[in-house]
């Protein structure tokens, strides 16, 4: 089970909406870092994902290990939050 889920998003990113919608539908709560509101945290998203893209979903597991999923990718998101 995921202990914590954080999503890095931007205002215009439709795939970010889909990740939030999917997590909501599956009953997961999450926190959001909007990079348009917090451009200073862009570097943090890039360092974590290695990619210049959103959404970046950071899943912290019970054992504090982290899994990072870039994009709206259900094949990766579903097992990561399970």
């Amino acid at each position: 089970m995921a202990k914590d889920i954080t999503i890095y998003t931007t205002n215009t990113c439709a795939y970010c909406v889909m990740v939030k919608k999917w997590l909501g539908a599956k009953g997961h709560s999450y926190s959001e870092v909007n990079l348009d509101d917090h451009p200073e945290r862009q570097k943090e998203a890039f360092e974590m994902s290695g990619q210049l893209a959103v959404p970046v979903t950071v899943i912290t597991k019970d054992d504090d290990s982290k899994e990072i999923v870039v994009g709206y990718n259900l094949a990766k998101l579903a097992p990561a939050v399970a």
Partner: peptide
């Protein structure tokens, strides 16, 4: 791809401030 090459401006444009 996604590290400098993109197909969606509304998704990834913000990284190019």
């Amino acid at each position: 791809f996604a590290r400098g090459v993109h197909y969606c401006a509304t998704c990834d444009g913000a990284f190019y401030r």
